[in-house]
Simulated scan of single mutants.
Amino acid sequence: MMKAIQIPKSLIEETITRIRDAILTGELPLGSKLSEQRLADMLGVSRSPVAQALAVLKTEGLVEVYPKRGSFVYMPDARTVSELCEYRAILETAALQLSLERQSPLLLTSMRASVEAMEGALQAKDLQAYSRHDMAFHLAFLSHCDNRQLESAYSRSISTVIGVRTHVFMSGSPHPMRSMDEHRQILAACEAGDPQAACRLLEIHIHHLDKDFINMG
């Protein structure tokens, strides 16, 4: 019996990446309805890879599926955002301490580059670019902690946090200036060789996200 032609795996992976990026950059807003046919038309593919992509993104927590209603971009409640921030703070402070112990010069170089890029994006009033460079600042902790398990755990769970951050940023919240100052303070503490102060500042900074999210309601 003739077998059906399988959709190339690379096409499915590319579809997943495109839809994920659209969610994380705010092109597909939190809570918005996802039409398989509309997404397929936008991406120039059939509905099959889109359906498979949404199934994968559901496992990542970025898509929610409701019987008889369809698929939607996730919209977490305040408690979920608070828990995500708590989880993120635990991982990032651990990664920052390890990075300062193991690869401090490389870490500081990465952090300085991100801060400089964030300042440029803020001056240009490009909030999407600011958000990307902000994330790069935090990812530097994981890149230089020399712990693959910690980096893997972070990468599996960070997407939902990025989506919330973008949602808050694009809402017109005035907090980017505060965010910029906090990143400078974290960098300064690291440059001063004070990991305890850096981690304390980092934890405060991370938990501002759940407060900003609540204030949007």
Rank of each mutant, 00 (worst) to 15 (best):
R132D: 07
R132K: 09
S110T: 07
E86W: 05
L127V: 13
A121R: 05
A136R: 15
D134S: 14
L84T: 06
P67K: 13
V115N: 04
Y74N: 15
V81D: 00
S104H: 12
K125W: 04
L100V: 00
S99C: 09
L100A: 07
Y130T: 09
A129D: 11
R69N: 03
S71Y: 13
A95T: 03
E119I: 09
F72S: 01
S82E: 12
R79N: 06
L108H: 06
A95K: 01
L106Y: 08
Q128S: 11
A136I: 08
A113N: 12
P105M: 08
E119V: 12
V73L: 04
L91R: 10
V115F: 15
V73W: 06
L122R: 12
Q103M: 11
Y66F: 15
T109A: 13
L84R: 04
R132T: 09
A89Y: 01
H133Q: 14
G120A: 04
A95W: 02
S71R: 15
G120C: 08
Q128W: 15
V73D: 09
A78G: 09
A78L: 12
R69W: 02
R79G: 05
T80L: 05
A129K: 07
A78H: 15
M118Q: 13
T109K: 12
M75I: 09
L84W: 08
G120N: 10
E101Y: 08
Q128P: 04
S82L: 06
S82P: 04
L98N: 11
S99D: 06
L100C: 03
S99R: 10
V81N: 00
D126P: 00
A113K: 15
T109M: 09
Y87D: 03
M118Y: 13
C85H: 01
V81C: 00
